[in-house]
Design a protein around this nucleic acid. Structure first.
Lengths: 200, 200
DNA sequence: CGTCTATTTGAATGTACTCAAAAGCGGTGG
DNA sequence: CCACCGCTTTTGAGTACATTCAAATAGACG
């Protein structure tokens, strides 16, 4: 009997390779280093709407998306969620703050790698290559965040068009209300912006 | 004859010590490493309104403020400046992008250390301690930028009150129009916010 | 199929902006 | 020392962008 399924097959050994090839684009790991990072990370599938990491917890992770999409968000004092970042395949997300300010939730079924914060510290401590790699990751995350901040000074319509251009693939998978949240506007207003773009 | 001056005396040798003690709070430099960093940085005074680094240039610097205040800003398509960051004593500023997106300008007379981007790369390449130190700097800059982004969702009045609480010392030295720019509002509106706070 | 959530639509409102003009303030030269 | 100039800040009126609230419609999932 053949089991039919839309979800991709889960093959533990294979997934770590995506992480290794990402790191190897920037530094070259030897056998010991490769084995070391493999021993510290956890690769696992995740289901749509699953909360992968919760704000307020002391357990923090760097999260690498292997397939599917996730979003990282915070919840303000009035209980409203604000999306900080979307992440697709080969993107890191997570939260450096302790306790964590942000939560991460799966937007689609997919697969992720979890690197616990303590394990990341051990990696960086033990091998300079990991220190270098994560310096690179943080440096680029900083630049992206600065760009995001800069964009927030433009109008909602401009931000939406820029979002579309950049994350075309995401729009298929993400409810509009989360896109509105990412853009910093209400779902109602995003609906009006979209309407105006179709027939101005 | 005695020359009178408000500006502090400029003593070349002494200034680097502030940089070294900053780094040594996080890693411990030996003699060679200390000499190496000393050989790569430039310490110099800066004058009010002087442009220390210019956007669009390929020459980029990490800038450490020793005394006085500086601001880092970008200029949008309409020619309007937007303040990204203020920096006071012991704060790093600068721009990782190439070519640079941001400019840095002195708000008061003061002293700064310039670390050219290429020199920073050499430092990080040669000694793991610098790699580690700057990873730490970037990681924290990222968290501050995330916090700044988060704040941008609150009202102008809330942002102004938060700014005041956090940068009380700065308010003395910075024209209101730059504070307005930092807060993402017009100078006119900041004036109205302030008026309302005095007599609501 | 029915229920629950997401999206659309409209009206009223609020927050912040633009433009214009007046008032305040600081530095400079006579 | 004062008067003037340029720049910053204040003030007001009118406007634009985005929100809130309410209700109707559309979609998704069990």
């Amino acid at each position: 009997m053949v089991v039919q399924s839309n979800s991709s097959l889960y093959l533990p050994g294979m997934n770590i390779d995506i992480l290794l090839s990402l790191i190897n684009q920037f530094v070259t790991l030897d056998e010991e280093e490769t084995a070391f990072v493999e021993s510290l990370v956890v690769s696992r599938p995740c289901k749509r709407n699953e909360v992968i990491a919760q704000s307020g917890k002391s357990s923090r992770y760097m999260i690498l998306v292997l397939s599917g999409y996730v979003m990282t968000y915070y919840t303000d004092n009035e209980g409203v969620d604000h999306v900080v970042q979307f992440a697709g395949s080969s993107w890191w997300t997570g939260d450096q703050n302790s306790p964590a300010l942000y939560s991460t939730r799966a937007l689609t079924d997919g697969e992720i790698i979890l690197l616990p914060k303590a394990a990341q510290d051990v990696l960086m401590e033990r091998h300079i290559k990991f220190e270098r790699y994560f310096r690179h990751v943080f440096q680029h995350a900083l630049m992206r965040m600065q760009a995001r901040f800069t964009e927030s000074h433009r109008t909602a319509e401009e931000r939406y068009l820029a979002f579309r251009a950049r994350y075309a693939a995401l729009e298929q998978h993400v409810p509009q209300k989360y896109i509105a949240s990412y853009l910093g506007i209400t779902p109602e207003f995003l609906s009006k912006v979209r309407k105006k773009l179709v027939r101005p």
